[in-house]
């Protein structure tokens, strides 16, 4: 028993060093050299300052931006320091209320649009940080965004196409639109009323 205890202690120590220090630090070292952009959070950097991550969504509910999916993180939506889903059951009355409210807000933002609203736009994501909306959810919002910005729907539509990621290798996952990338691209387009200047909103 005593030798078992000694061996167990030594084994735990040795395997801790191997799998708890050598392994994660070696992976960190390689990752930082070979994939440093991804390993540090796929950050979008401007003027040497991080201004977001392509993998982490942000909240948008201004008519001139494409709205992101509802987020259940607390205390504010898209809190990337504390990921969370709503965990509401489909039979929970609060869930149906939440969907009804979201539908109402979307309808109010674009009263002329009678098309049914894509499901992902009225349901909270699993992480609360979903960086994407579906292609249908983006299309549903094109006219509203174009109107709010005084842009042609075609121009906005092209930006949506540019921000669309297809299935990976044409096969895996779902087609989707990166919300932060799309809204940043929108901000880079000079508004029609404004004088065109080469530096306006450049990325």
């Amino acid at each position: 028993m005593r030798t078992q205890l000694r061996t167990a202690g030594l084994m735990l120590l040795t395997l801790t060093v191997l799998t708890g220090l050598v392994y994660p630090l070696a992976i960190t070292g390689i990752a930082q050299v070979v994939f440093s952009h991804q390993a540090n959070g796929s950050l979008i950097v401007r003027d040497a300052q991080p201004i977001g991550s392509t993998l982490i969504g942000q909240p948008f509910d201004d008519p001139k931006y494409f709205w992101s999916r509802p987020s259940a993180t607390t205390p504010f939506p898209y809190n990337a320091g504390s990921s969370s889903g709503s965990n509401l059951a489909v039979t929970n009355p609060a869930q149906l209320d939440a969907i009804a409210q979201r539908v109402q807000r979307l309808r109010a933002s674009d009263p002329g649009n009678a098309a049914p609203i894509p499901a992902d736009l009225v349901t909270a994501s699993g992480s609360g940080l979903d960086p994407h909306i579906s292609v249908a959810a983006a299309r549903w919002q094109i006219n509203r965004v174009a109107r709010a910005r005084g842009l042609d729907a075609d121009v906005v539509g092209k930006l949506v196409t540019a921000a669309t990621e297809g299935r990976q290798f044409g096969l895996l996952g779902e087609a989707r639109v990166n919300i932060l990338r799309l809204n940043r691209a929108l901000d880079a387009v000079p508004l029609r009323a404004e004088p065109r200047s080469p530096t306006a909103g450049g990325r």
Binding site: Q95, A119, T123, G126
Partner: peptide, 19 residues
């Protein structure tokens, strides 16, 4: 709400799921 599964959206019960 449009919850059909199409090429442009996953549809179905998307609460708690990622696009």
């Amino acid at each position: 709400v449009d919850a059909r599964t199409t090429a442009a959206q996953p549809g179905g019960n998307m609460e708690g799921k990622e696009v």
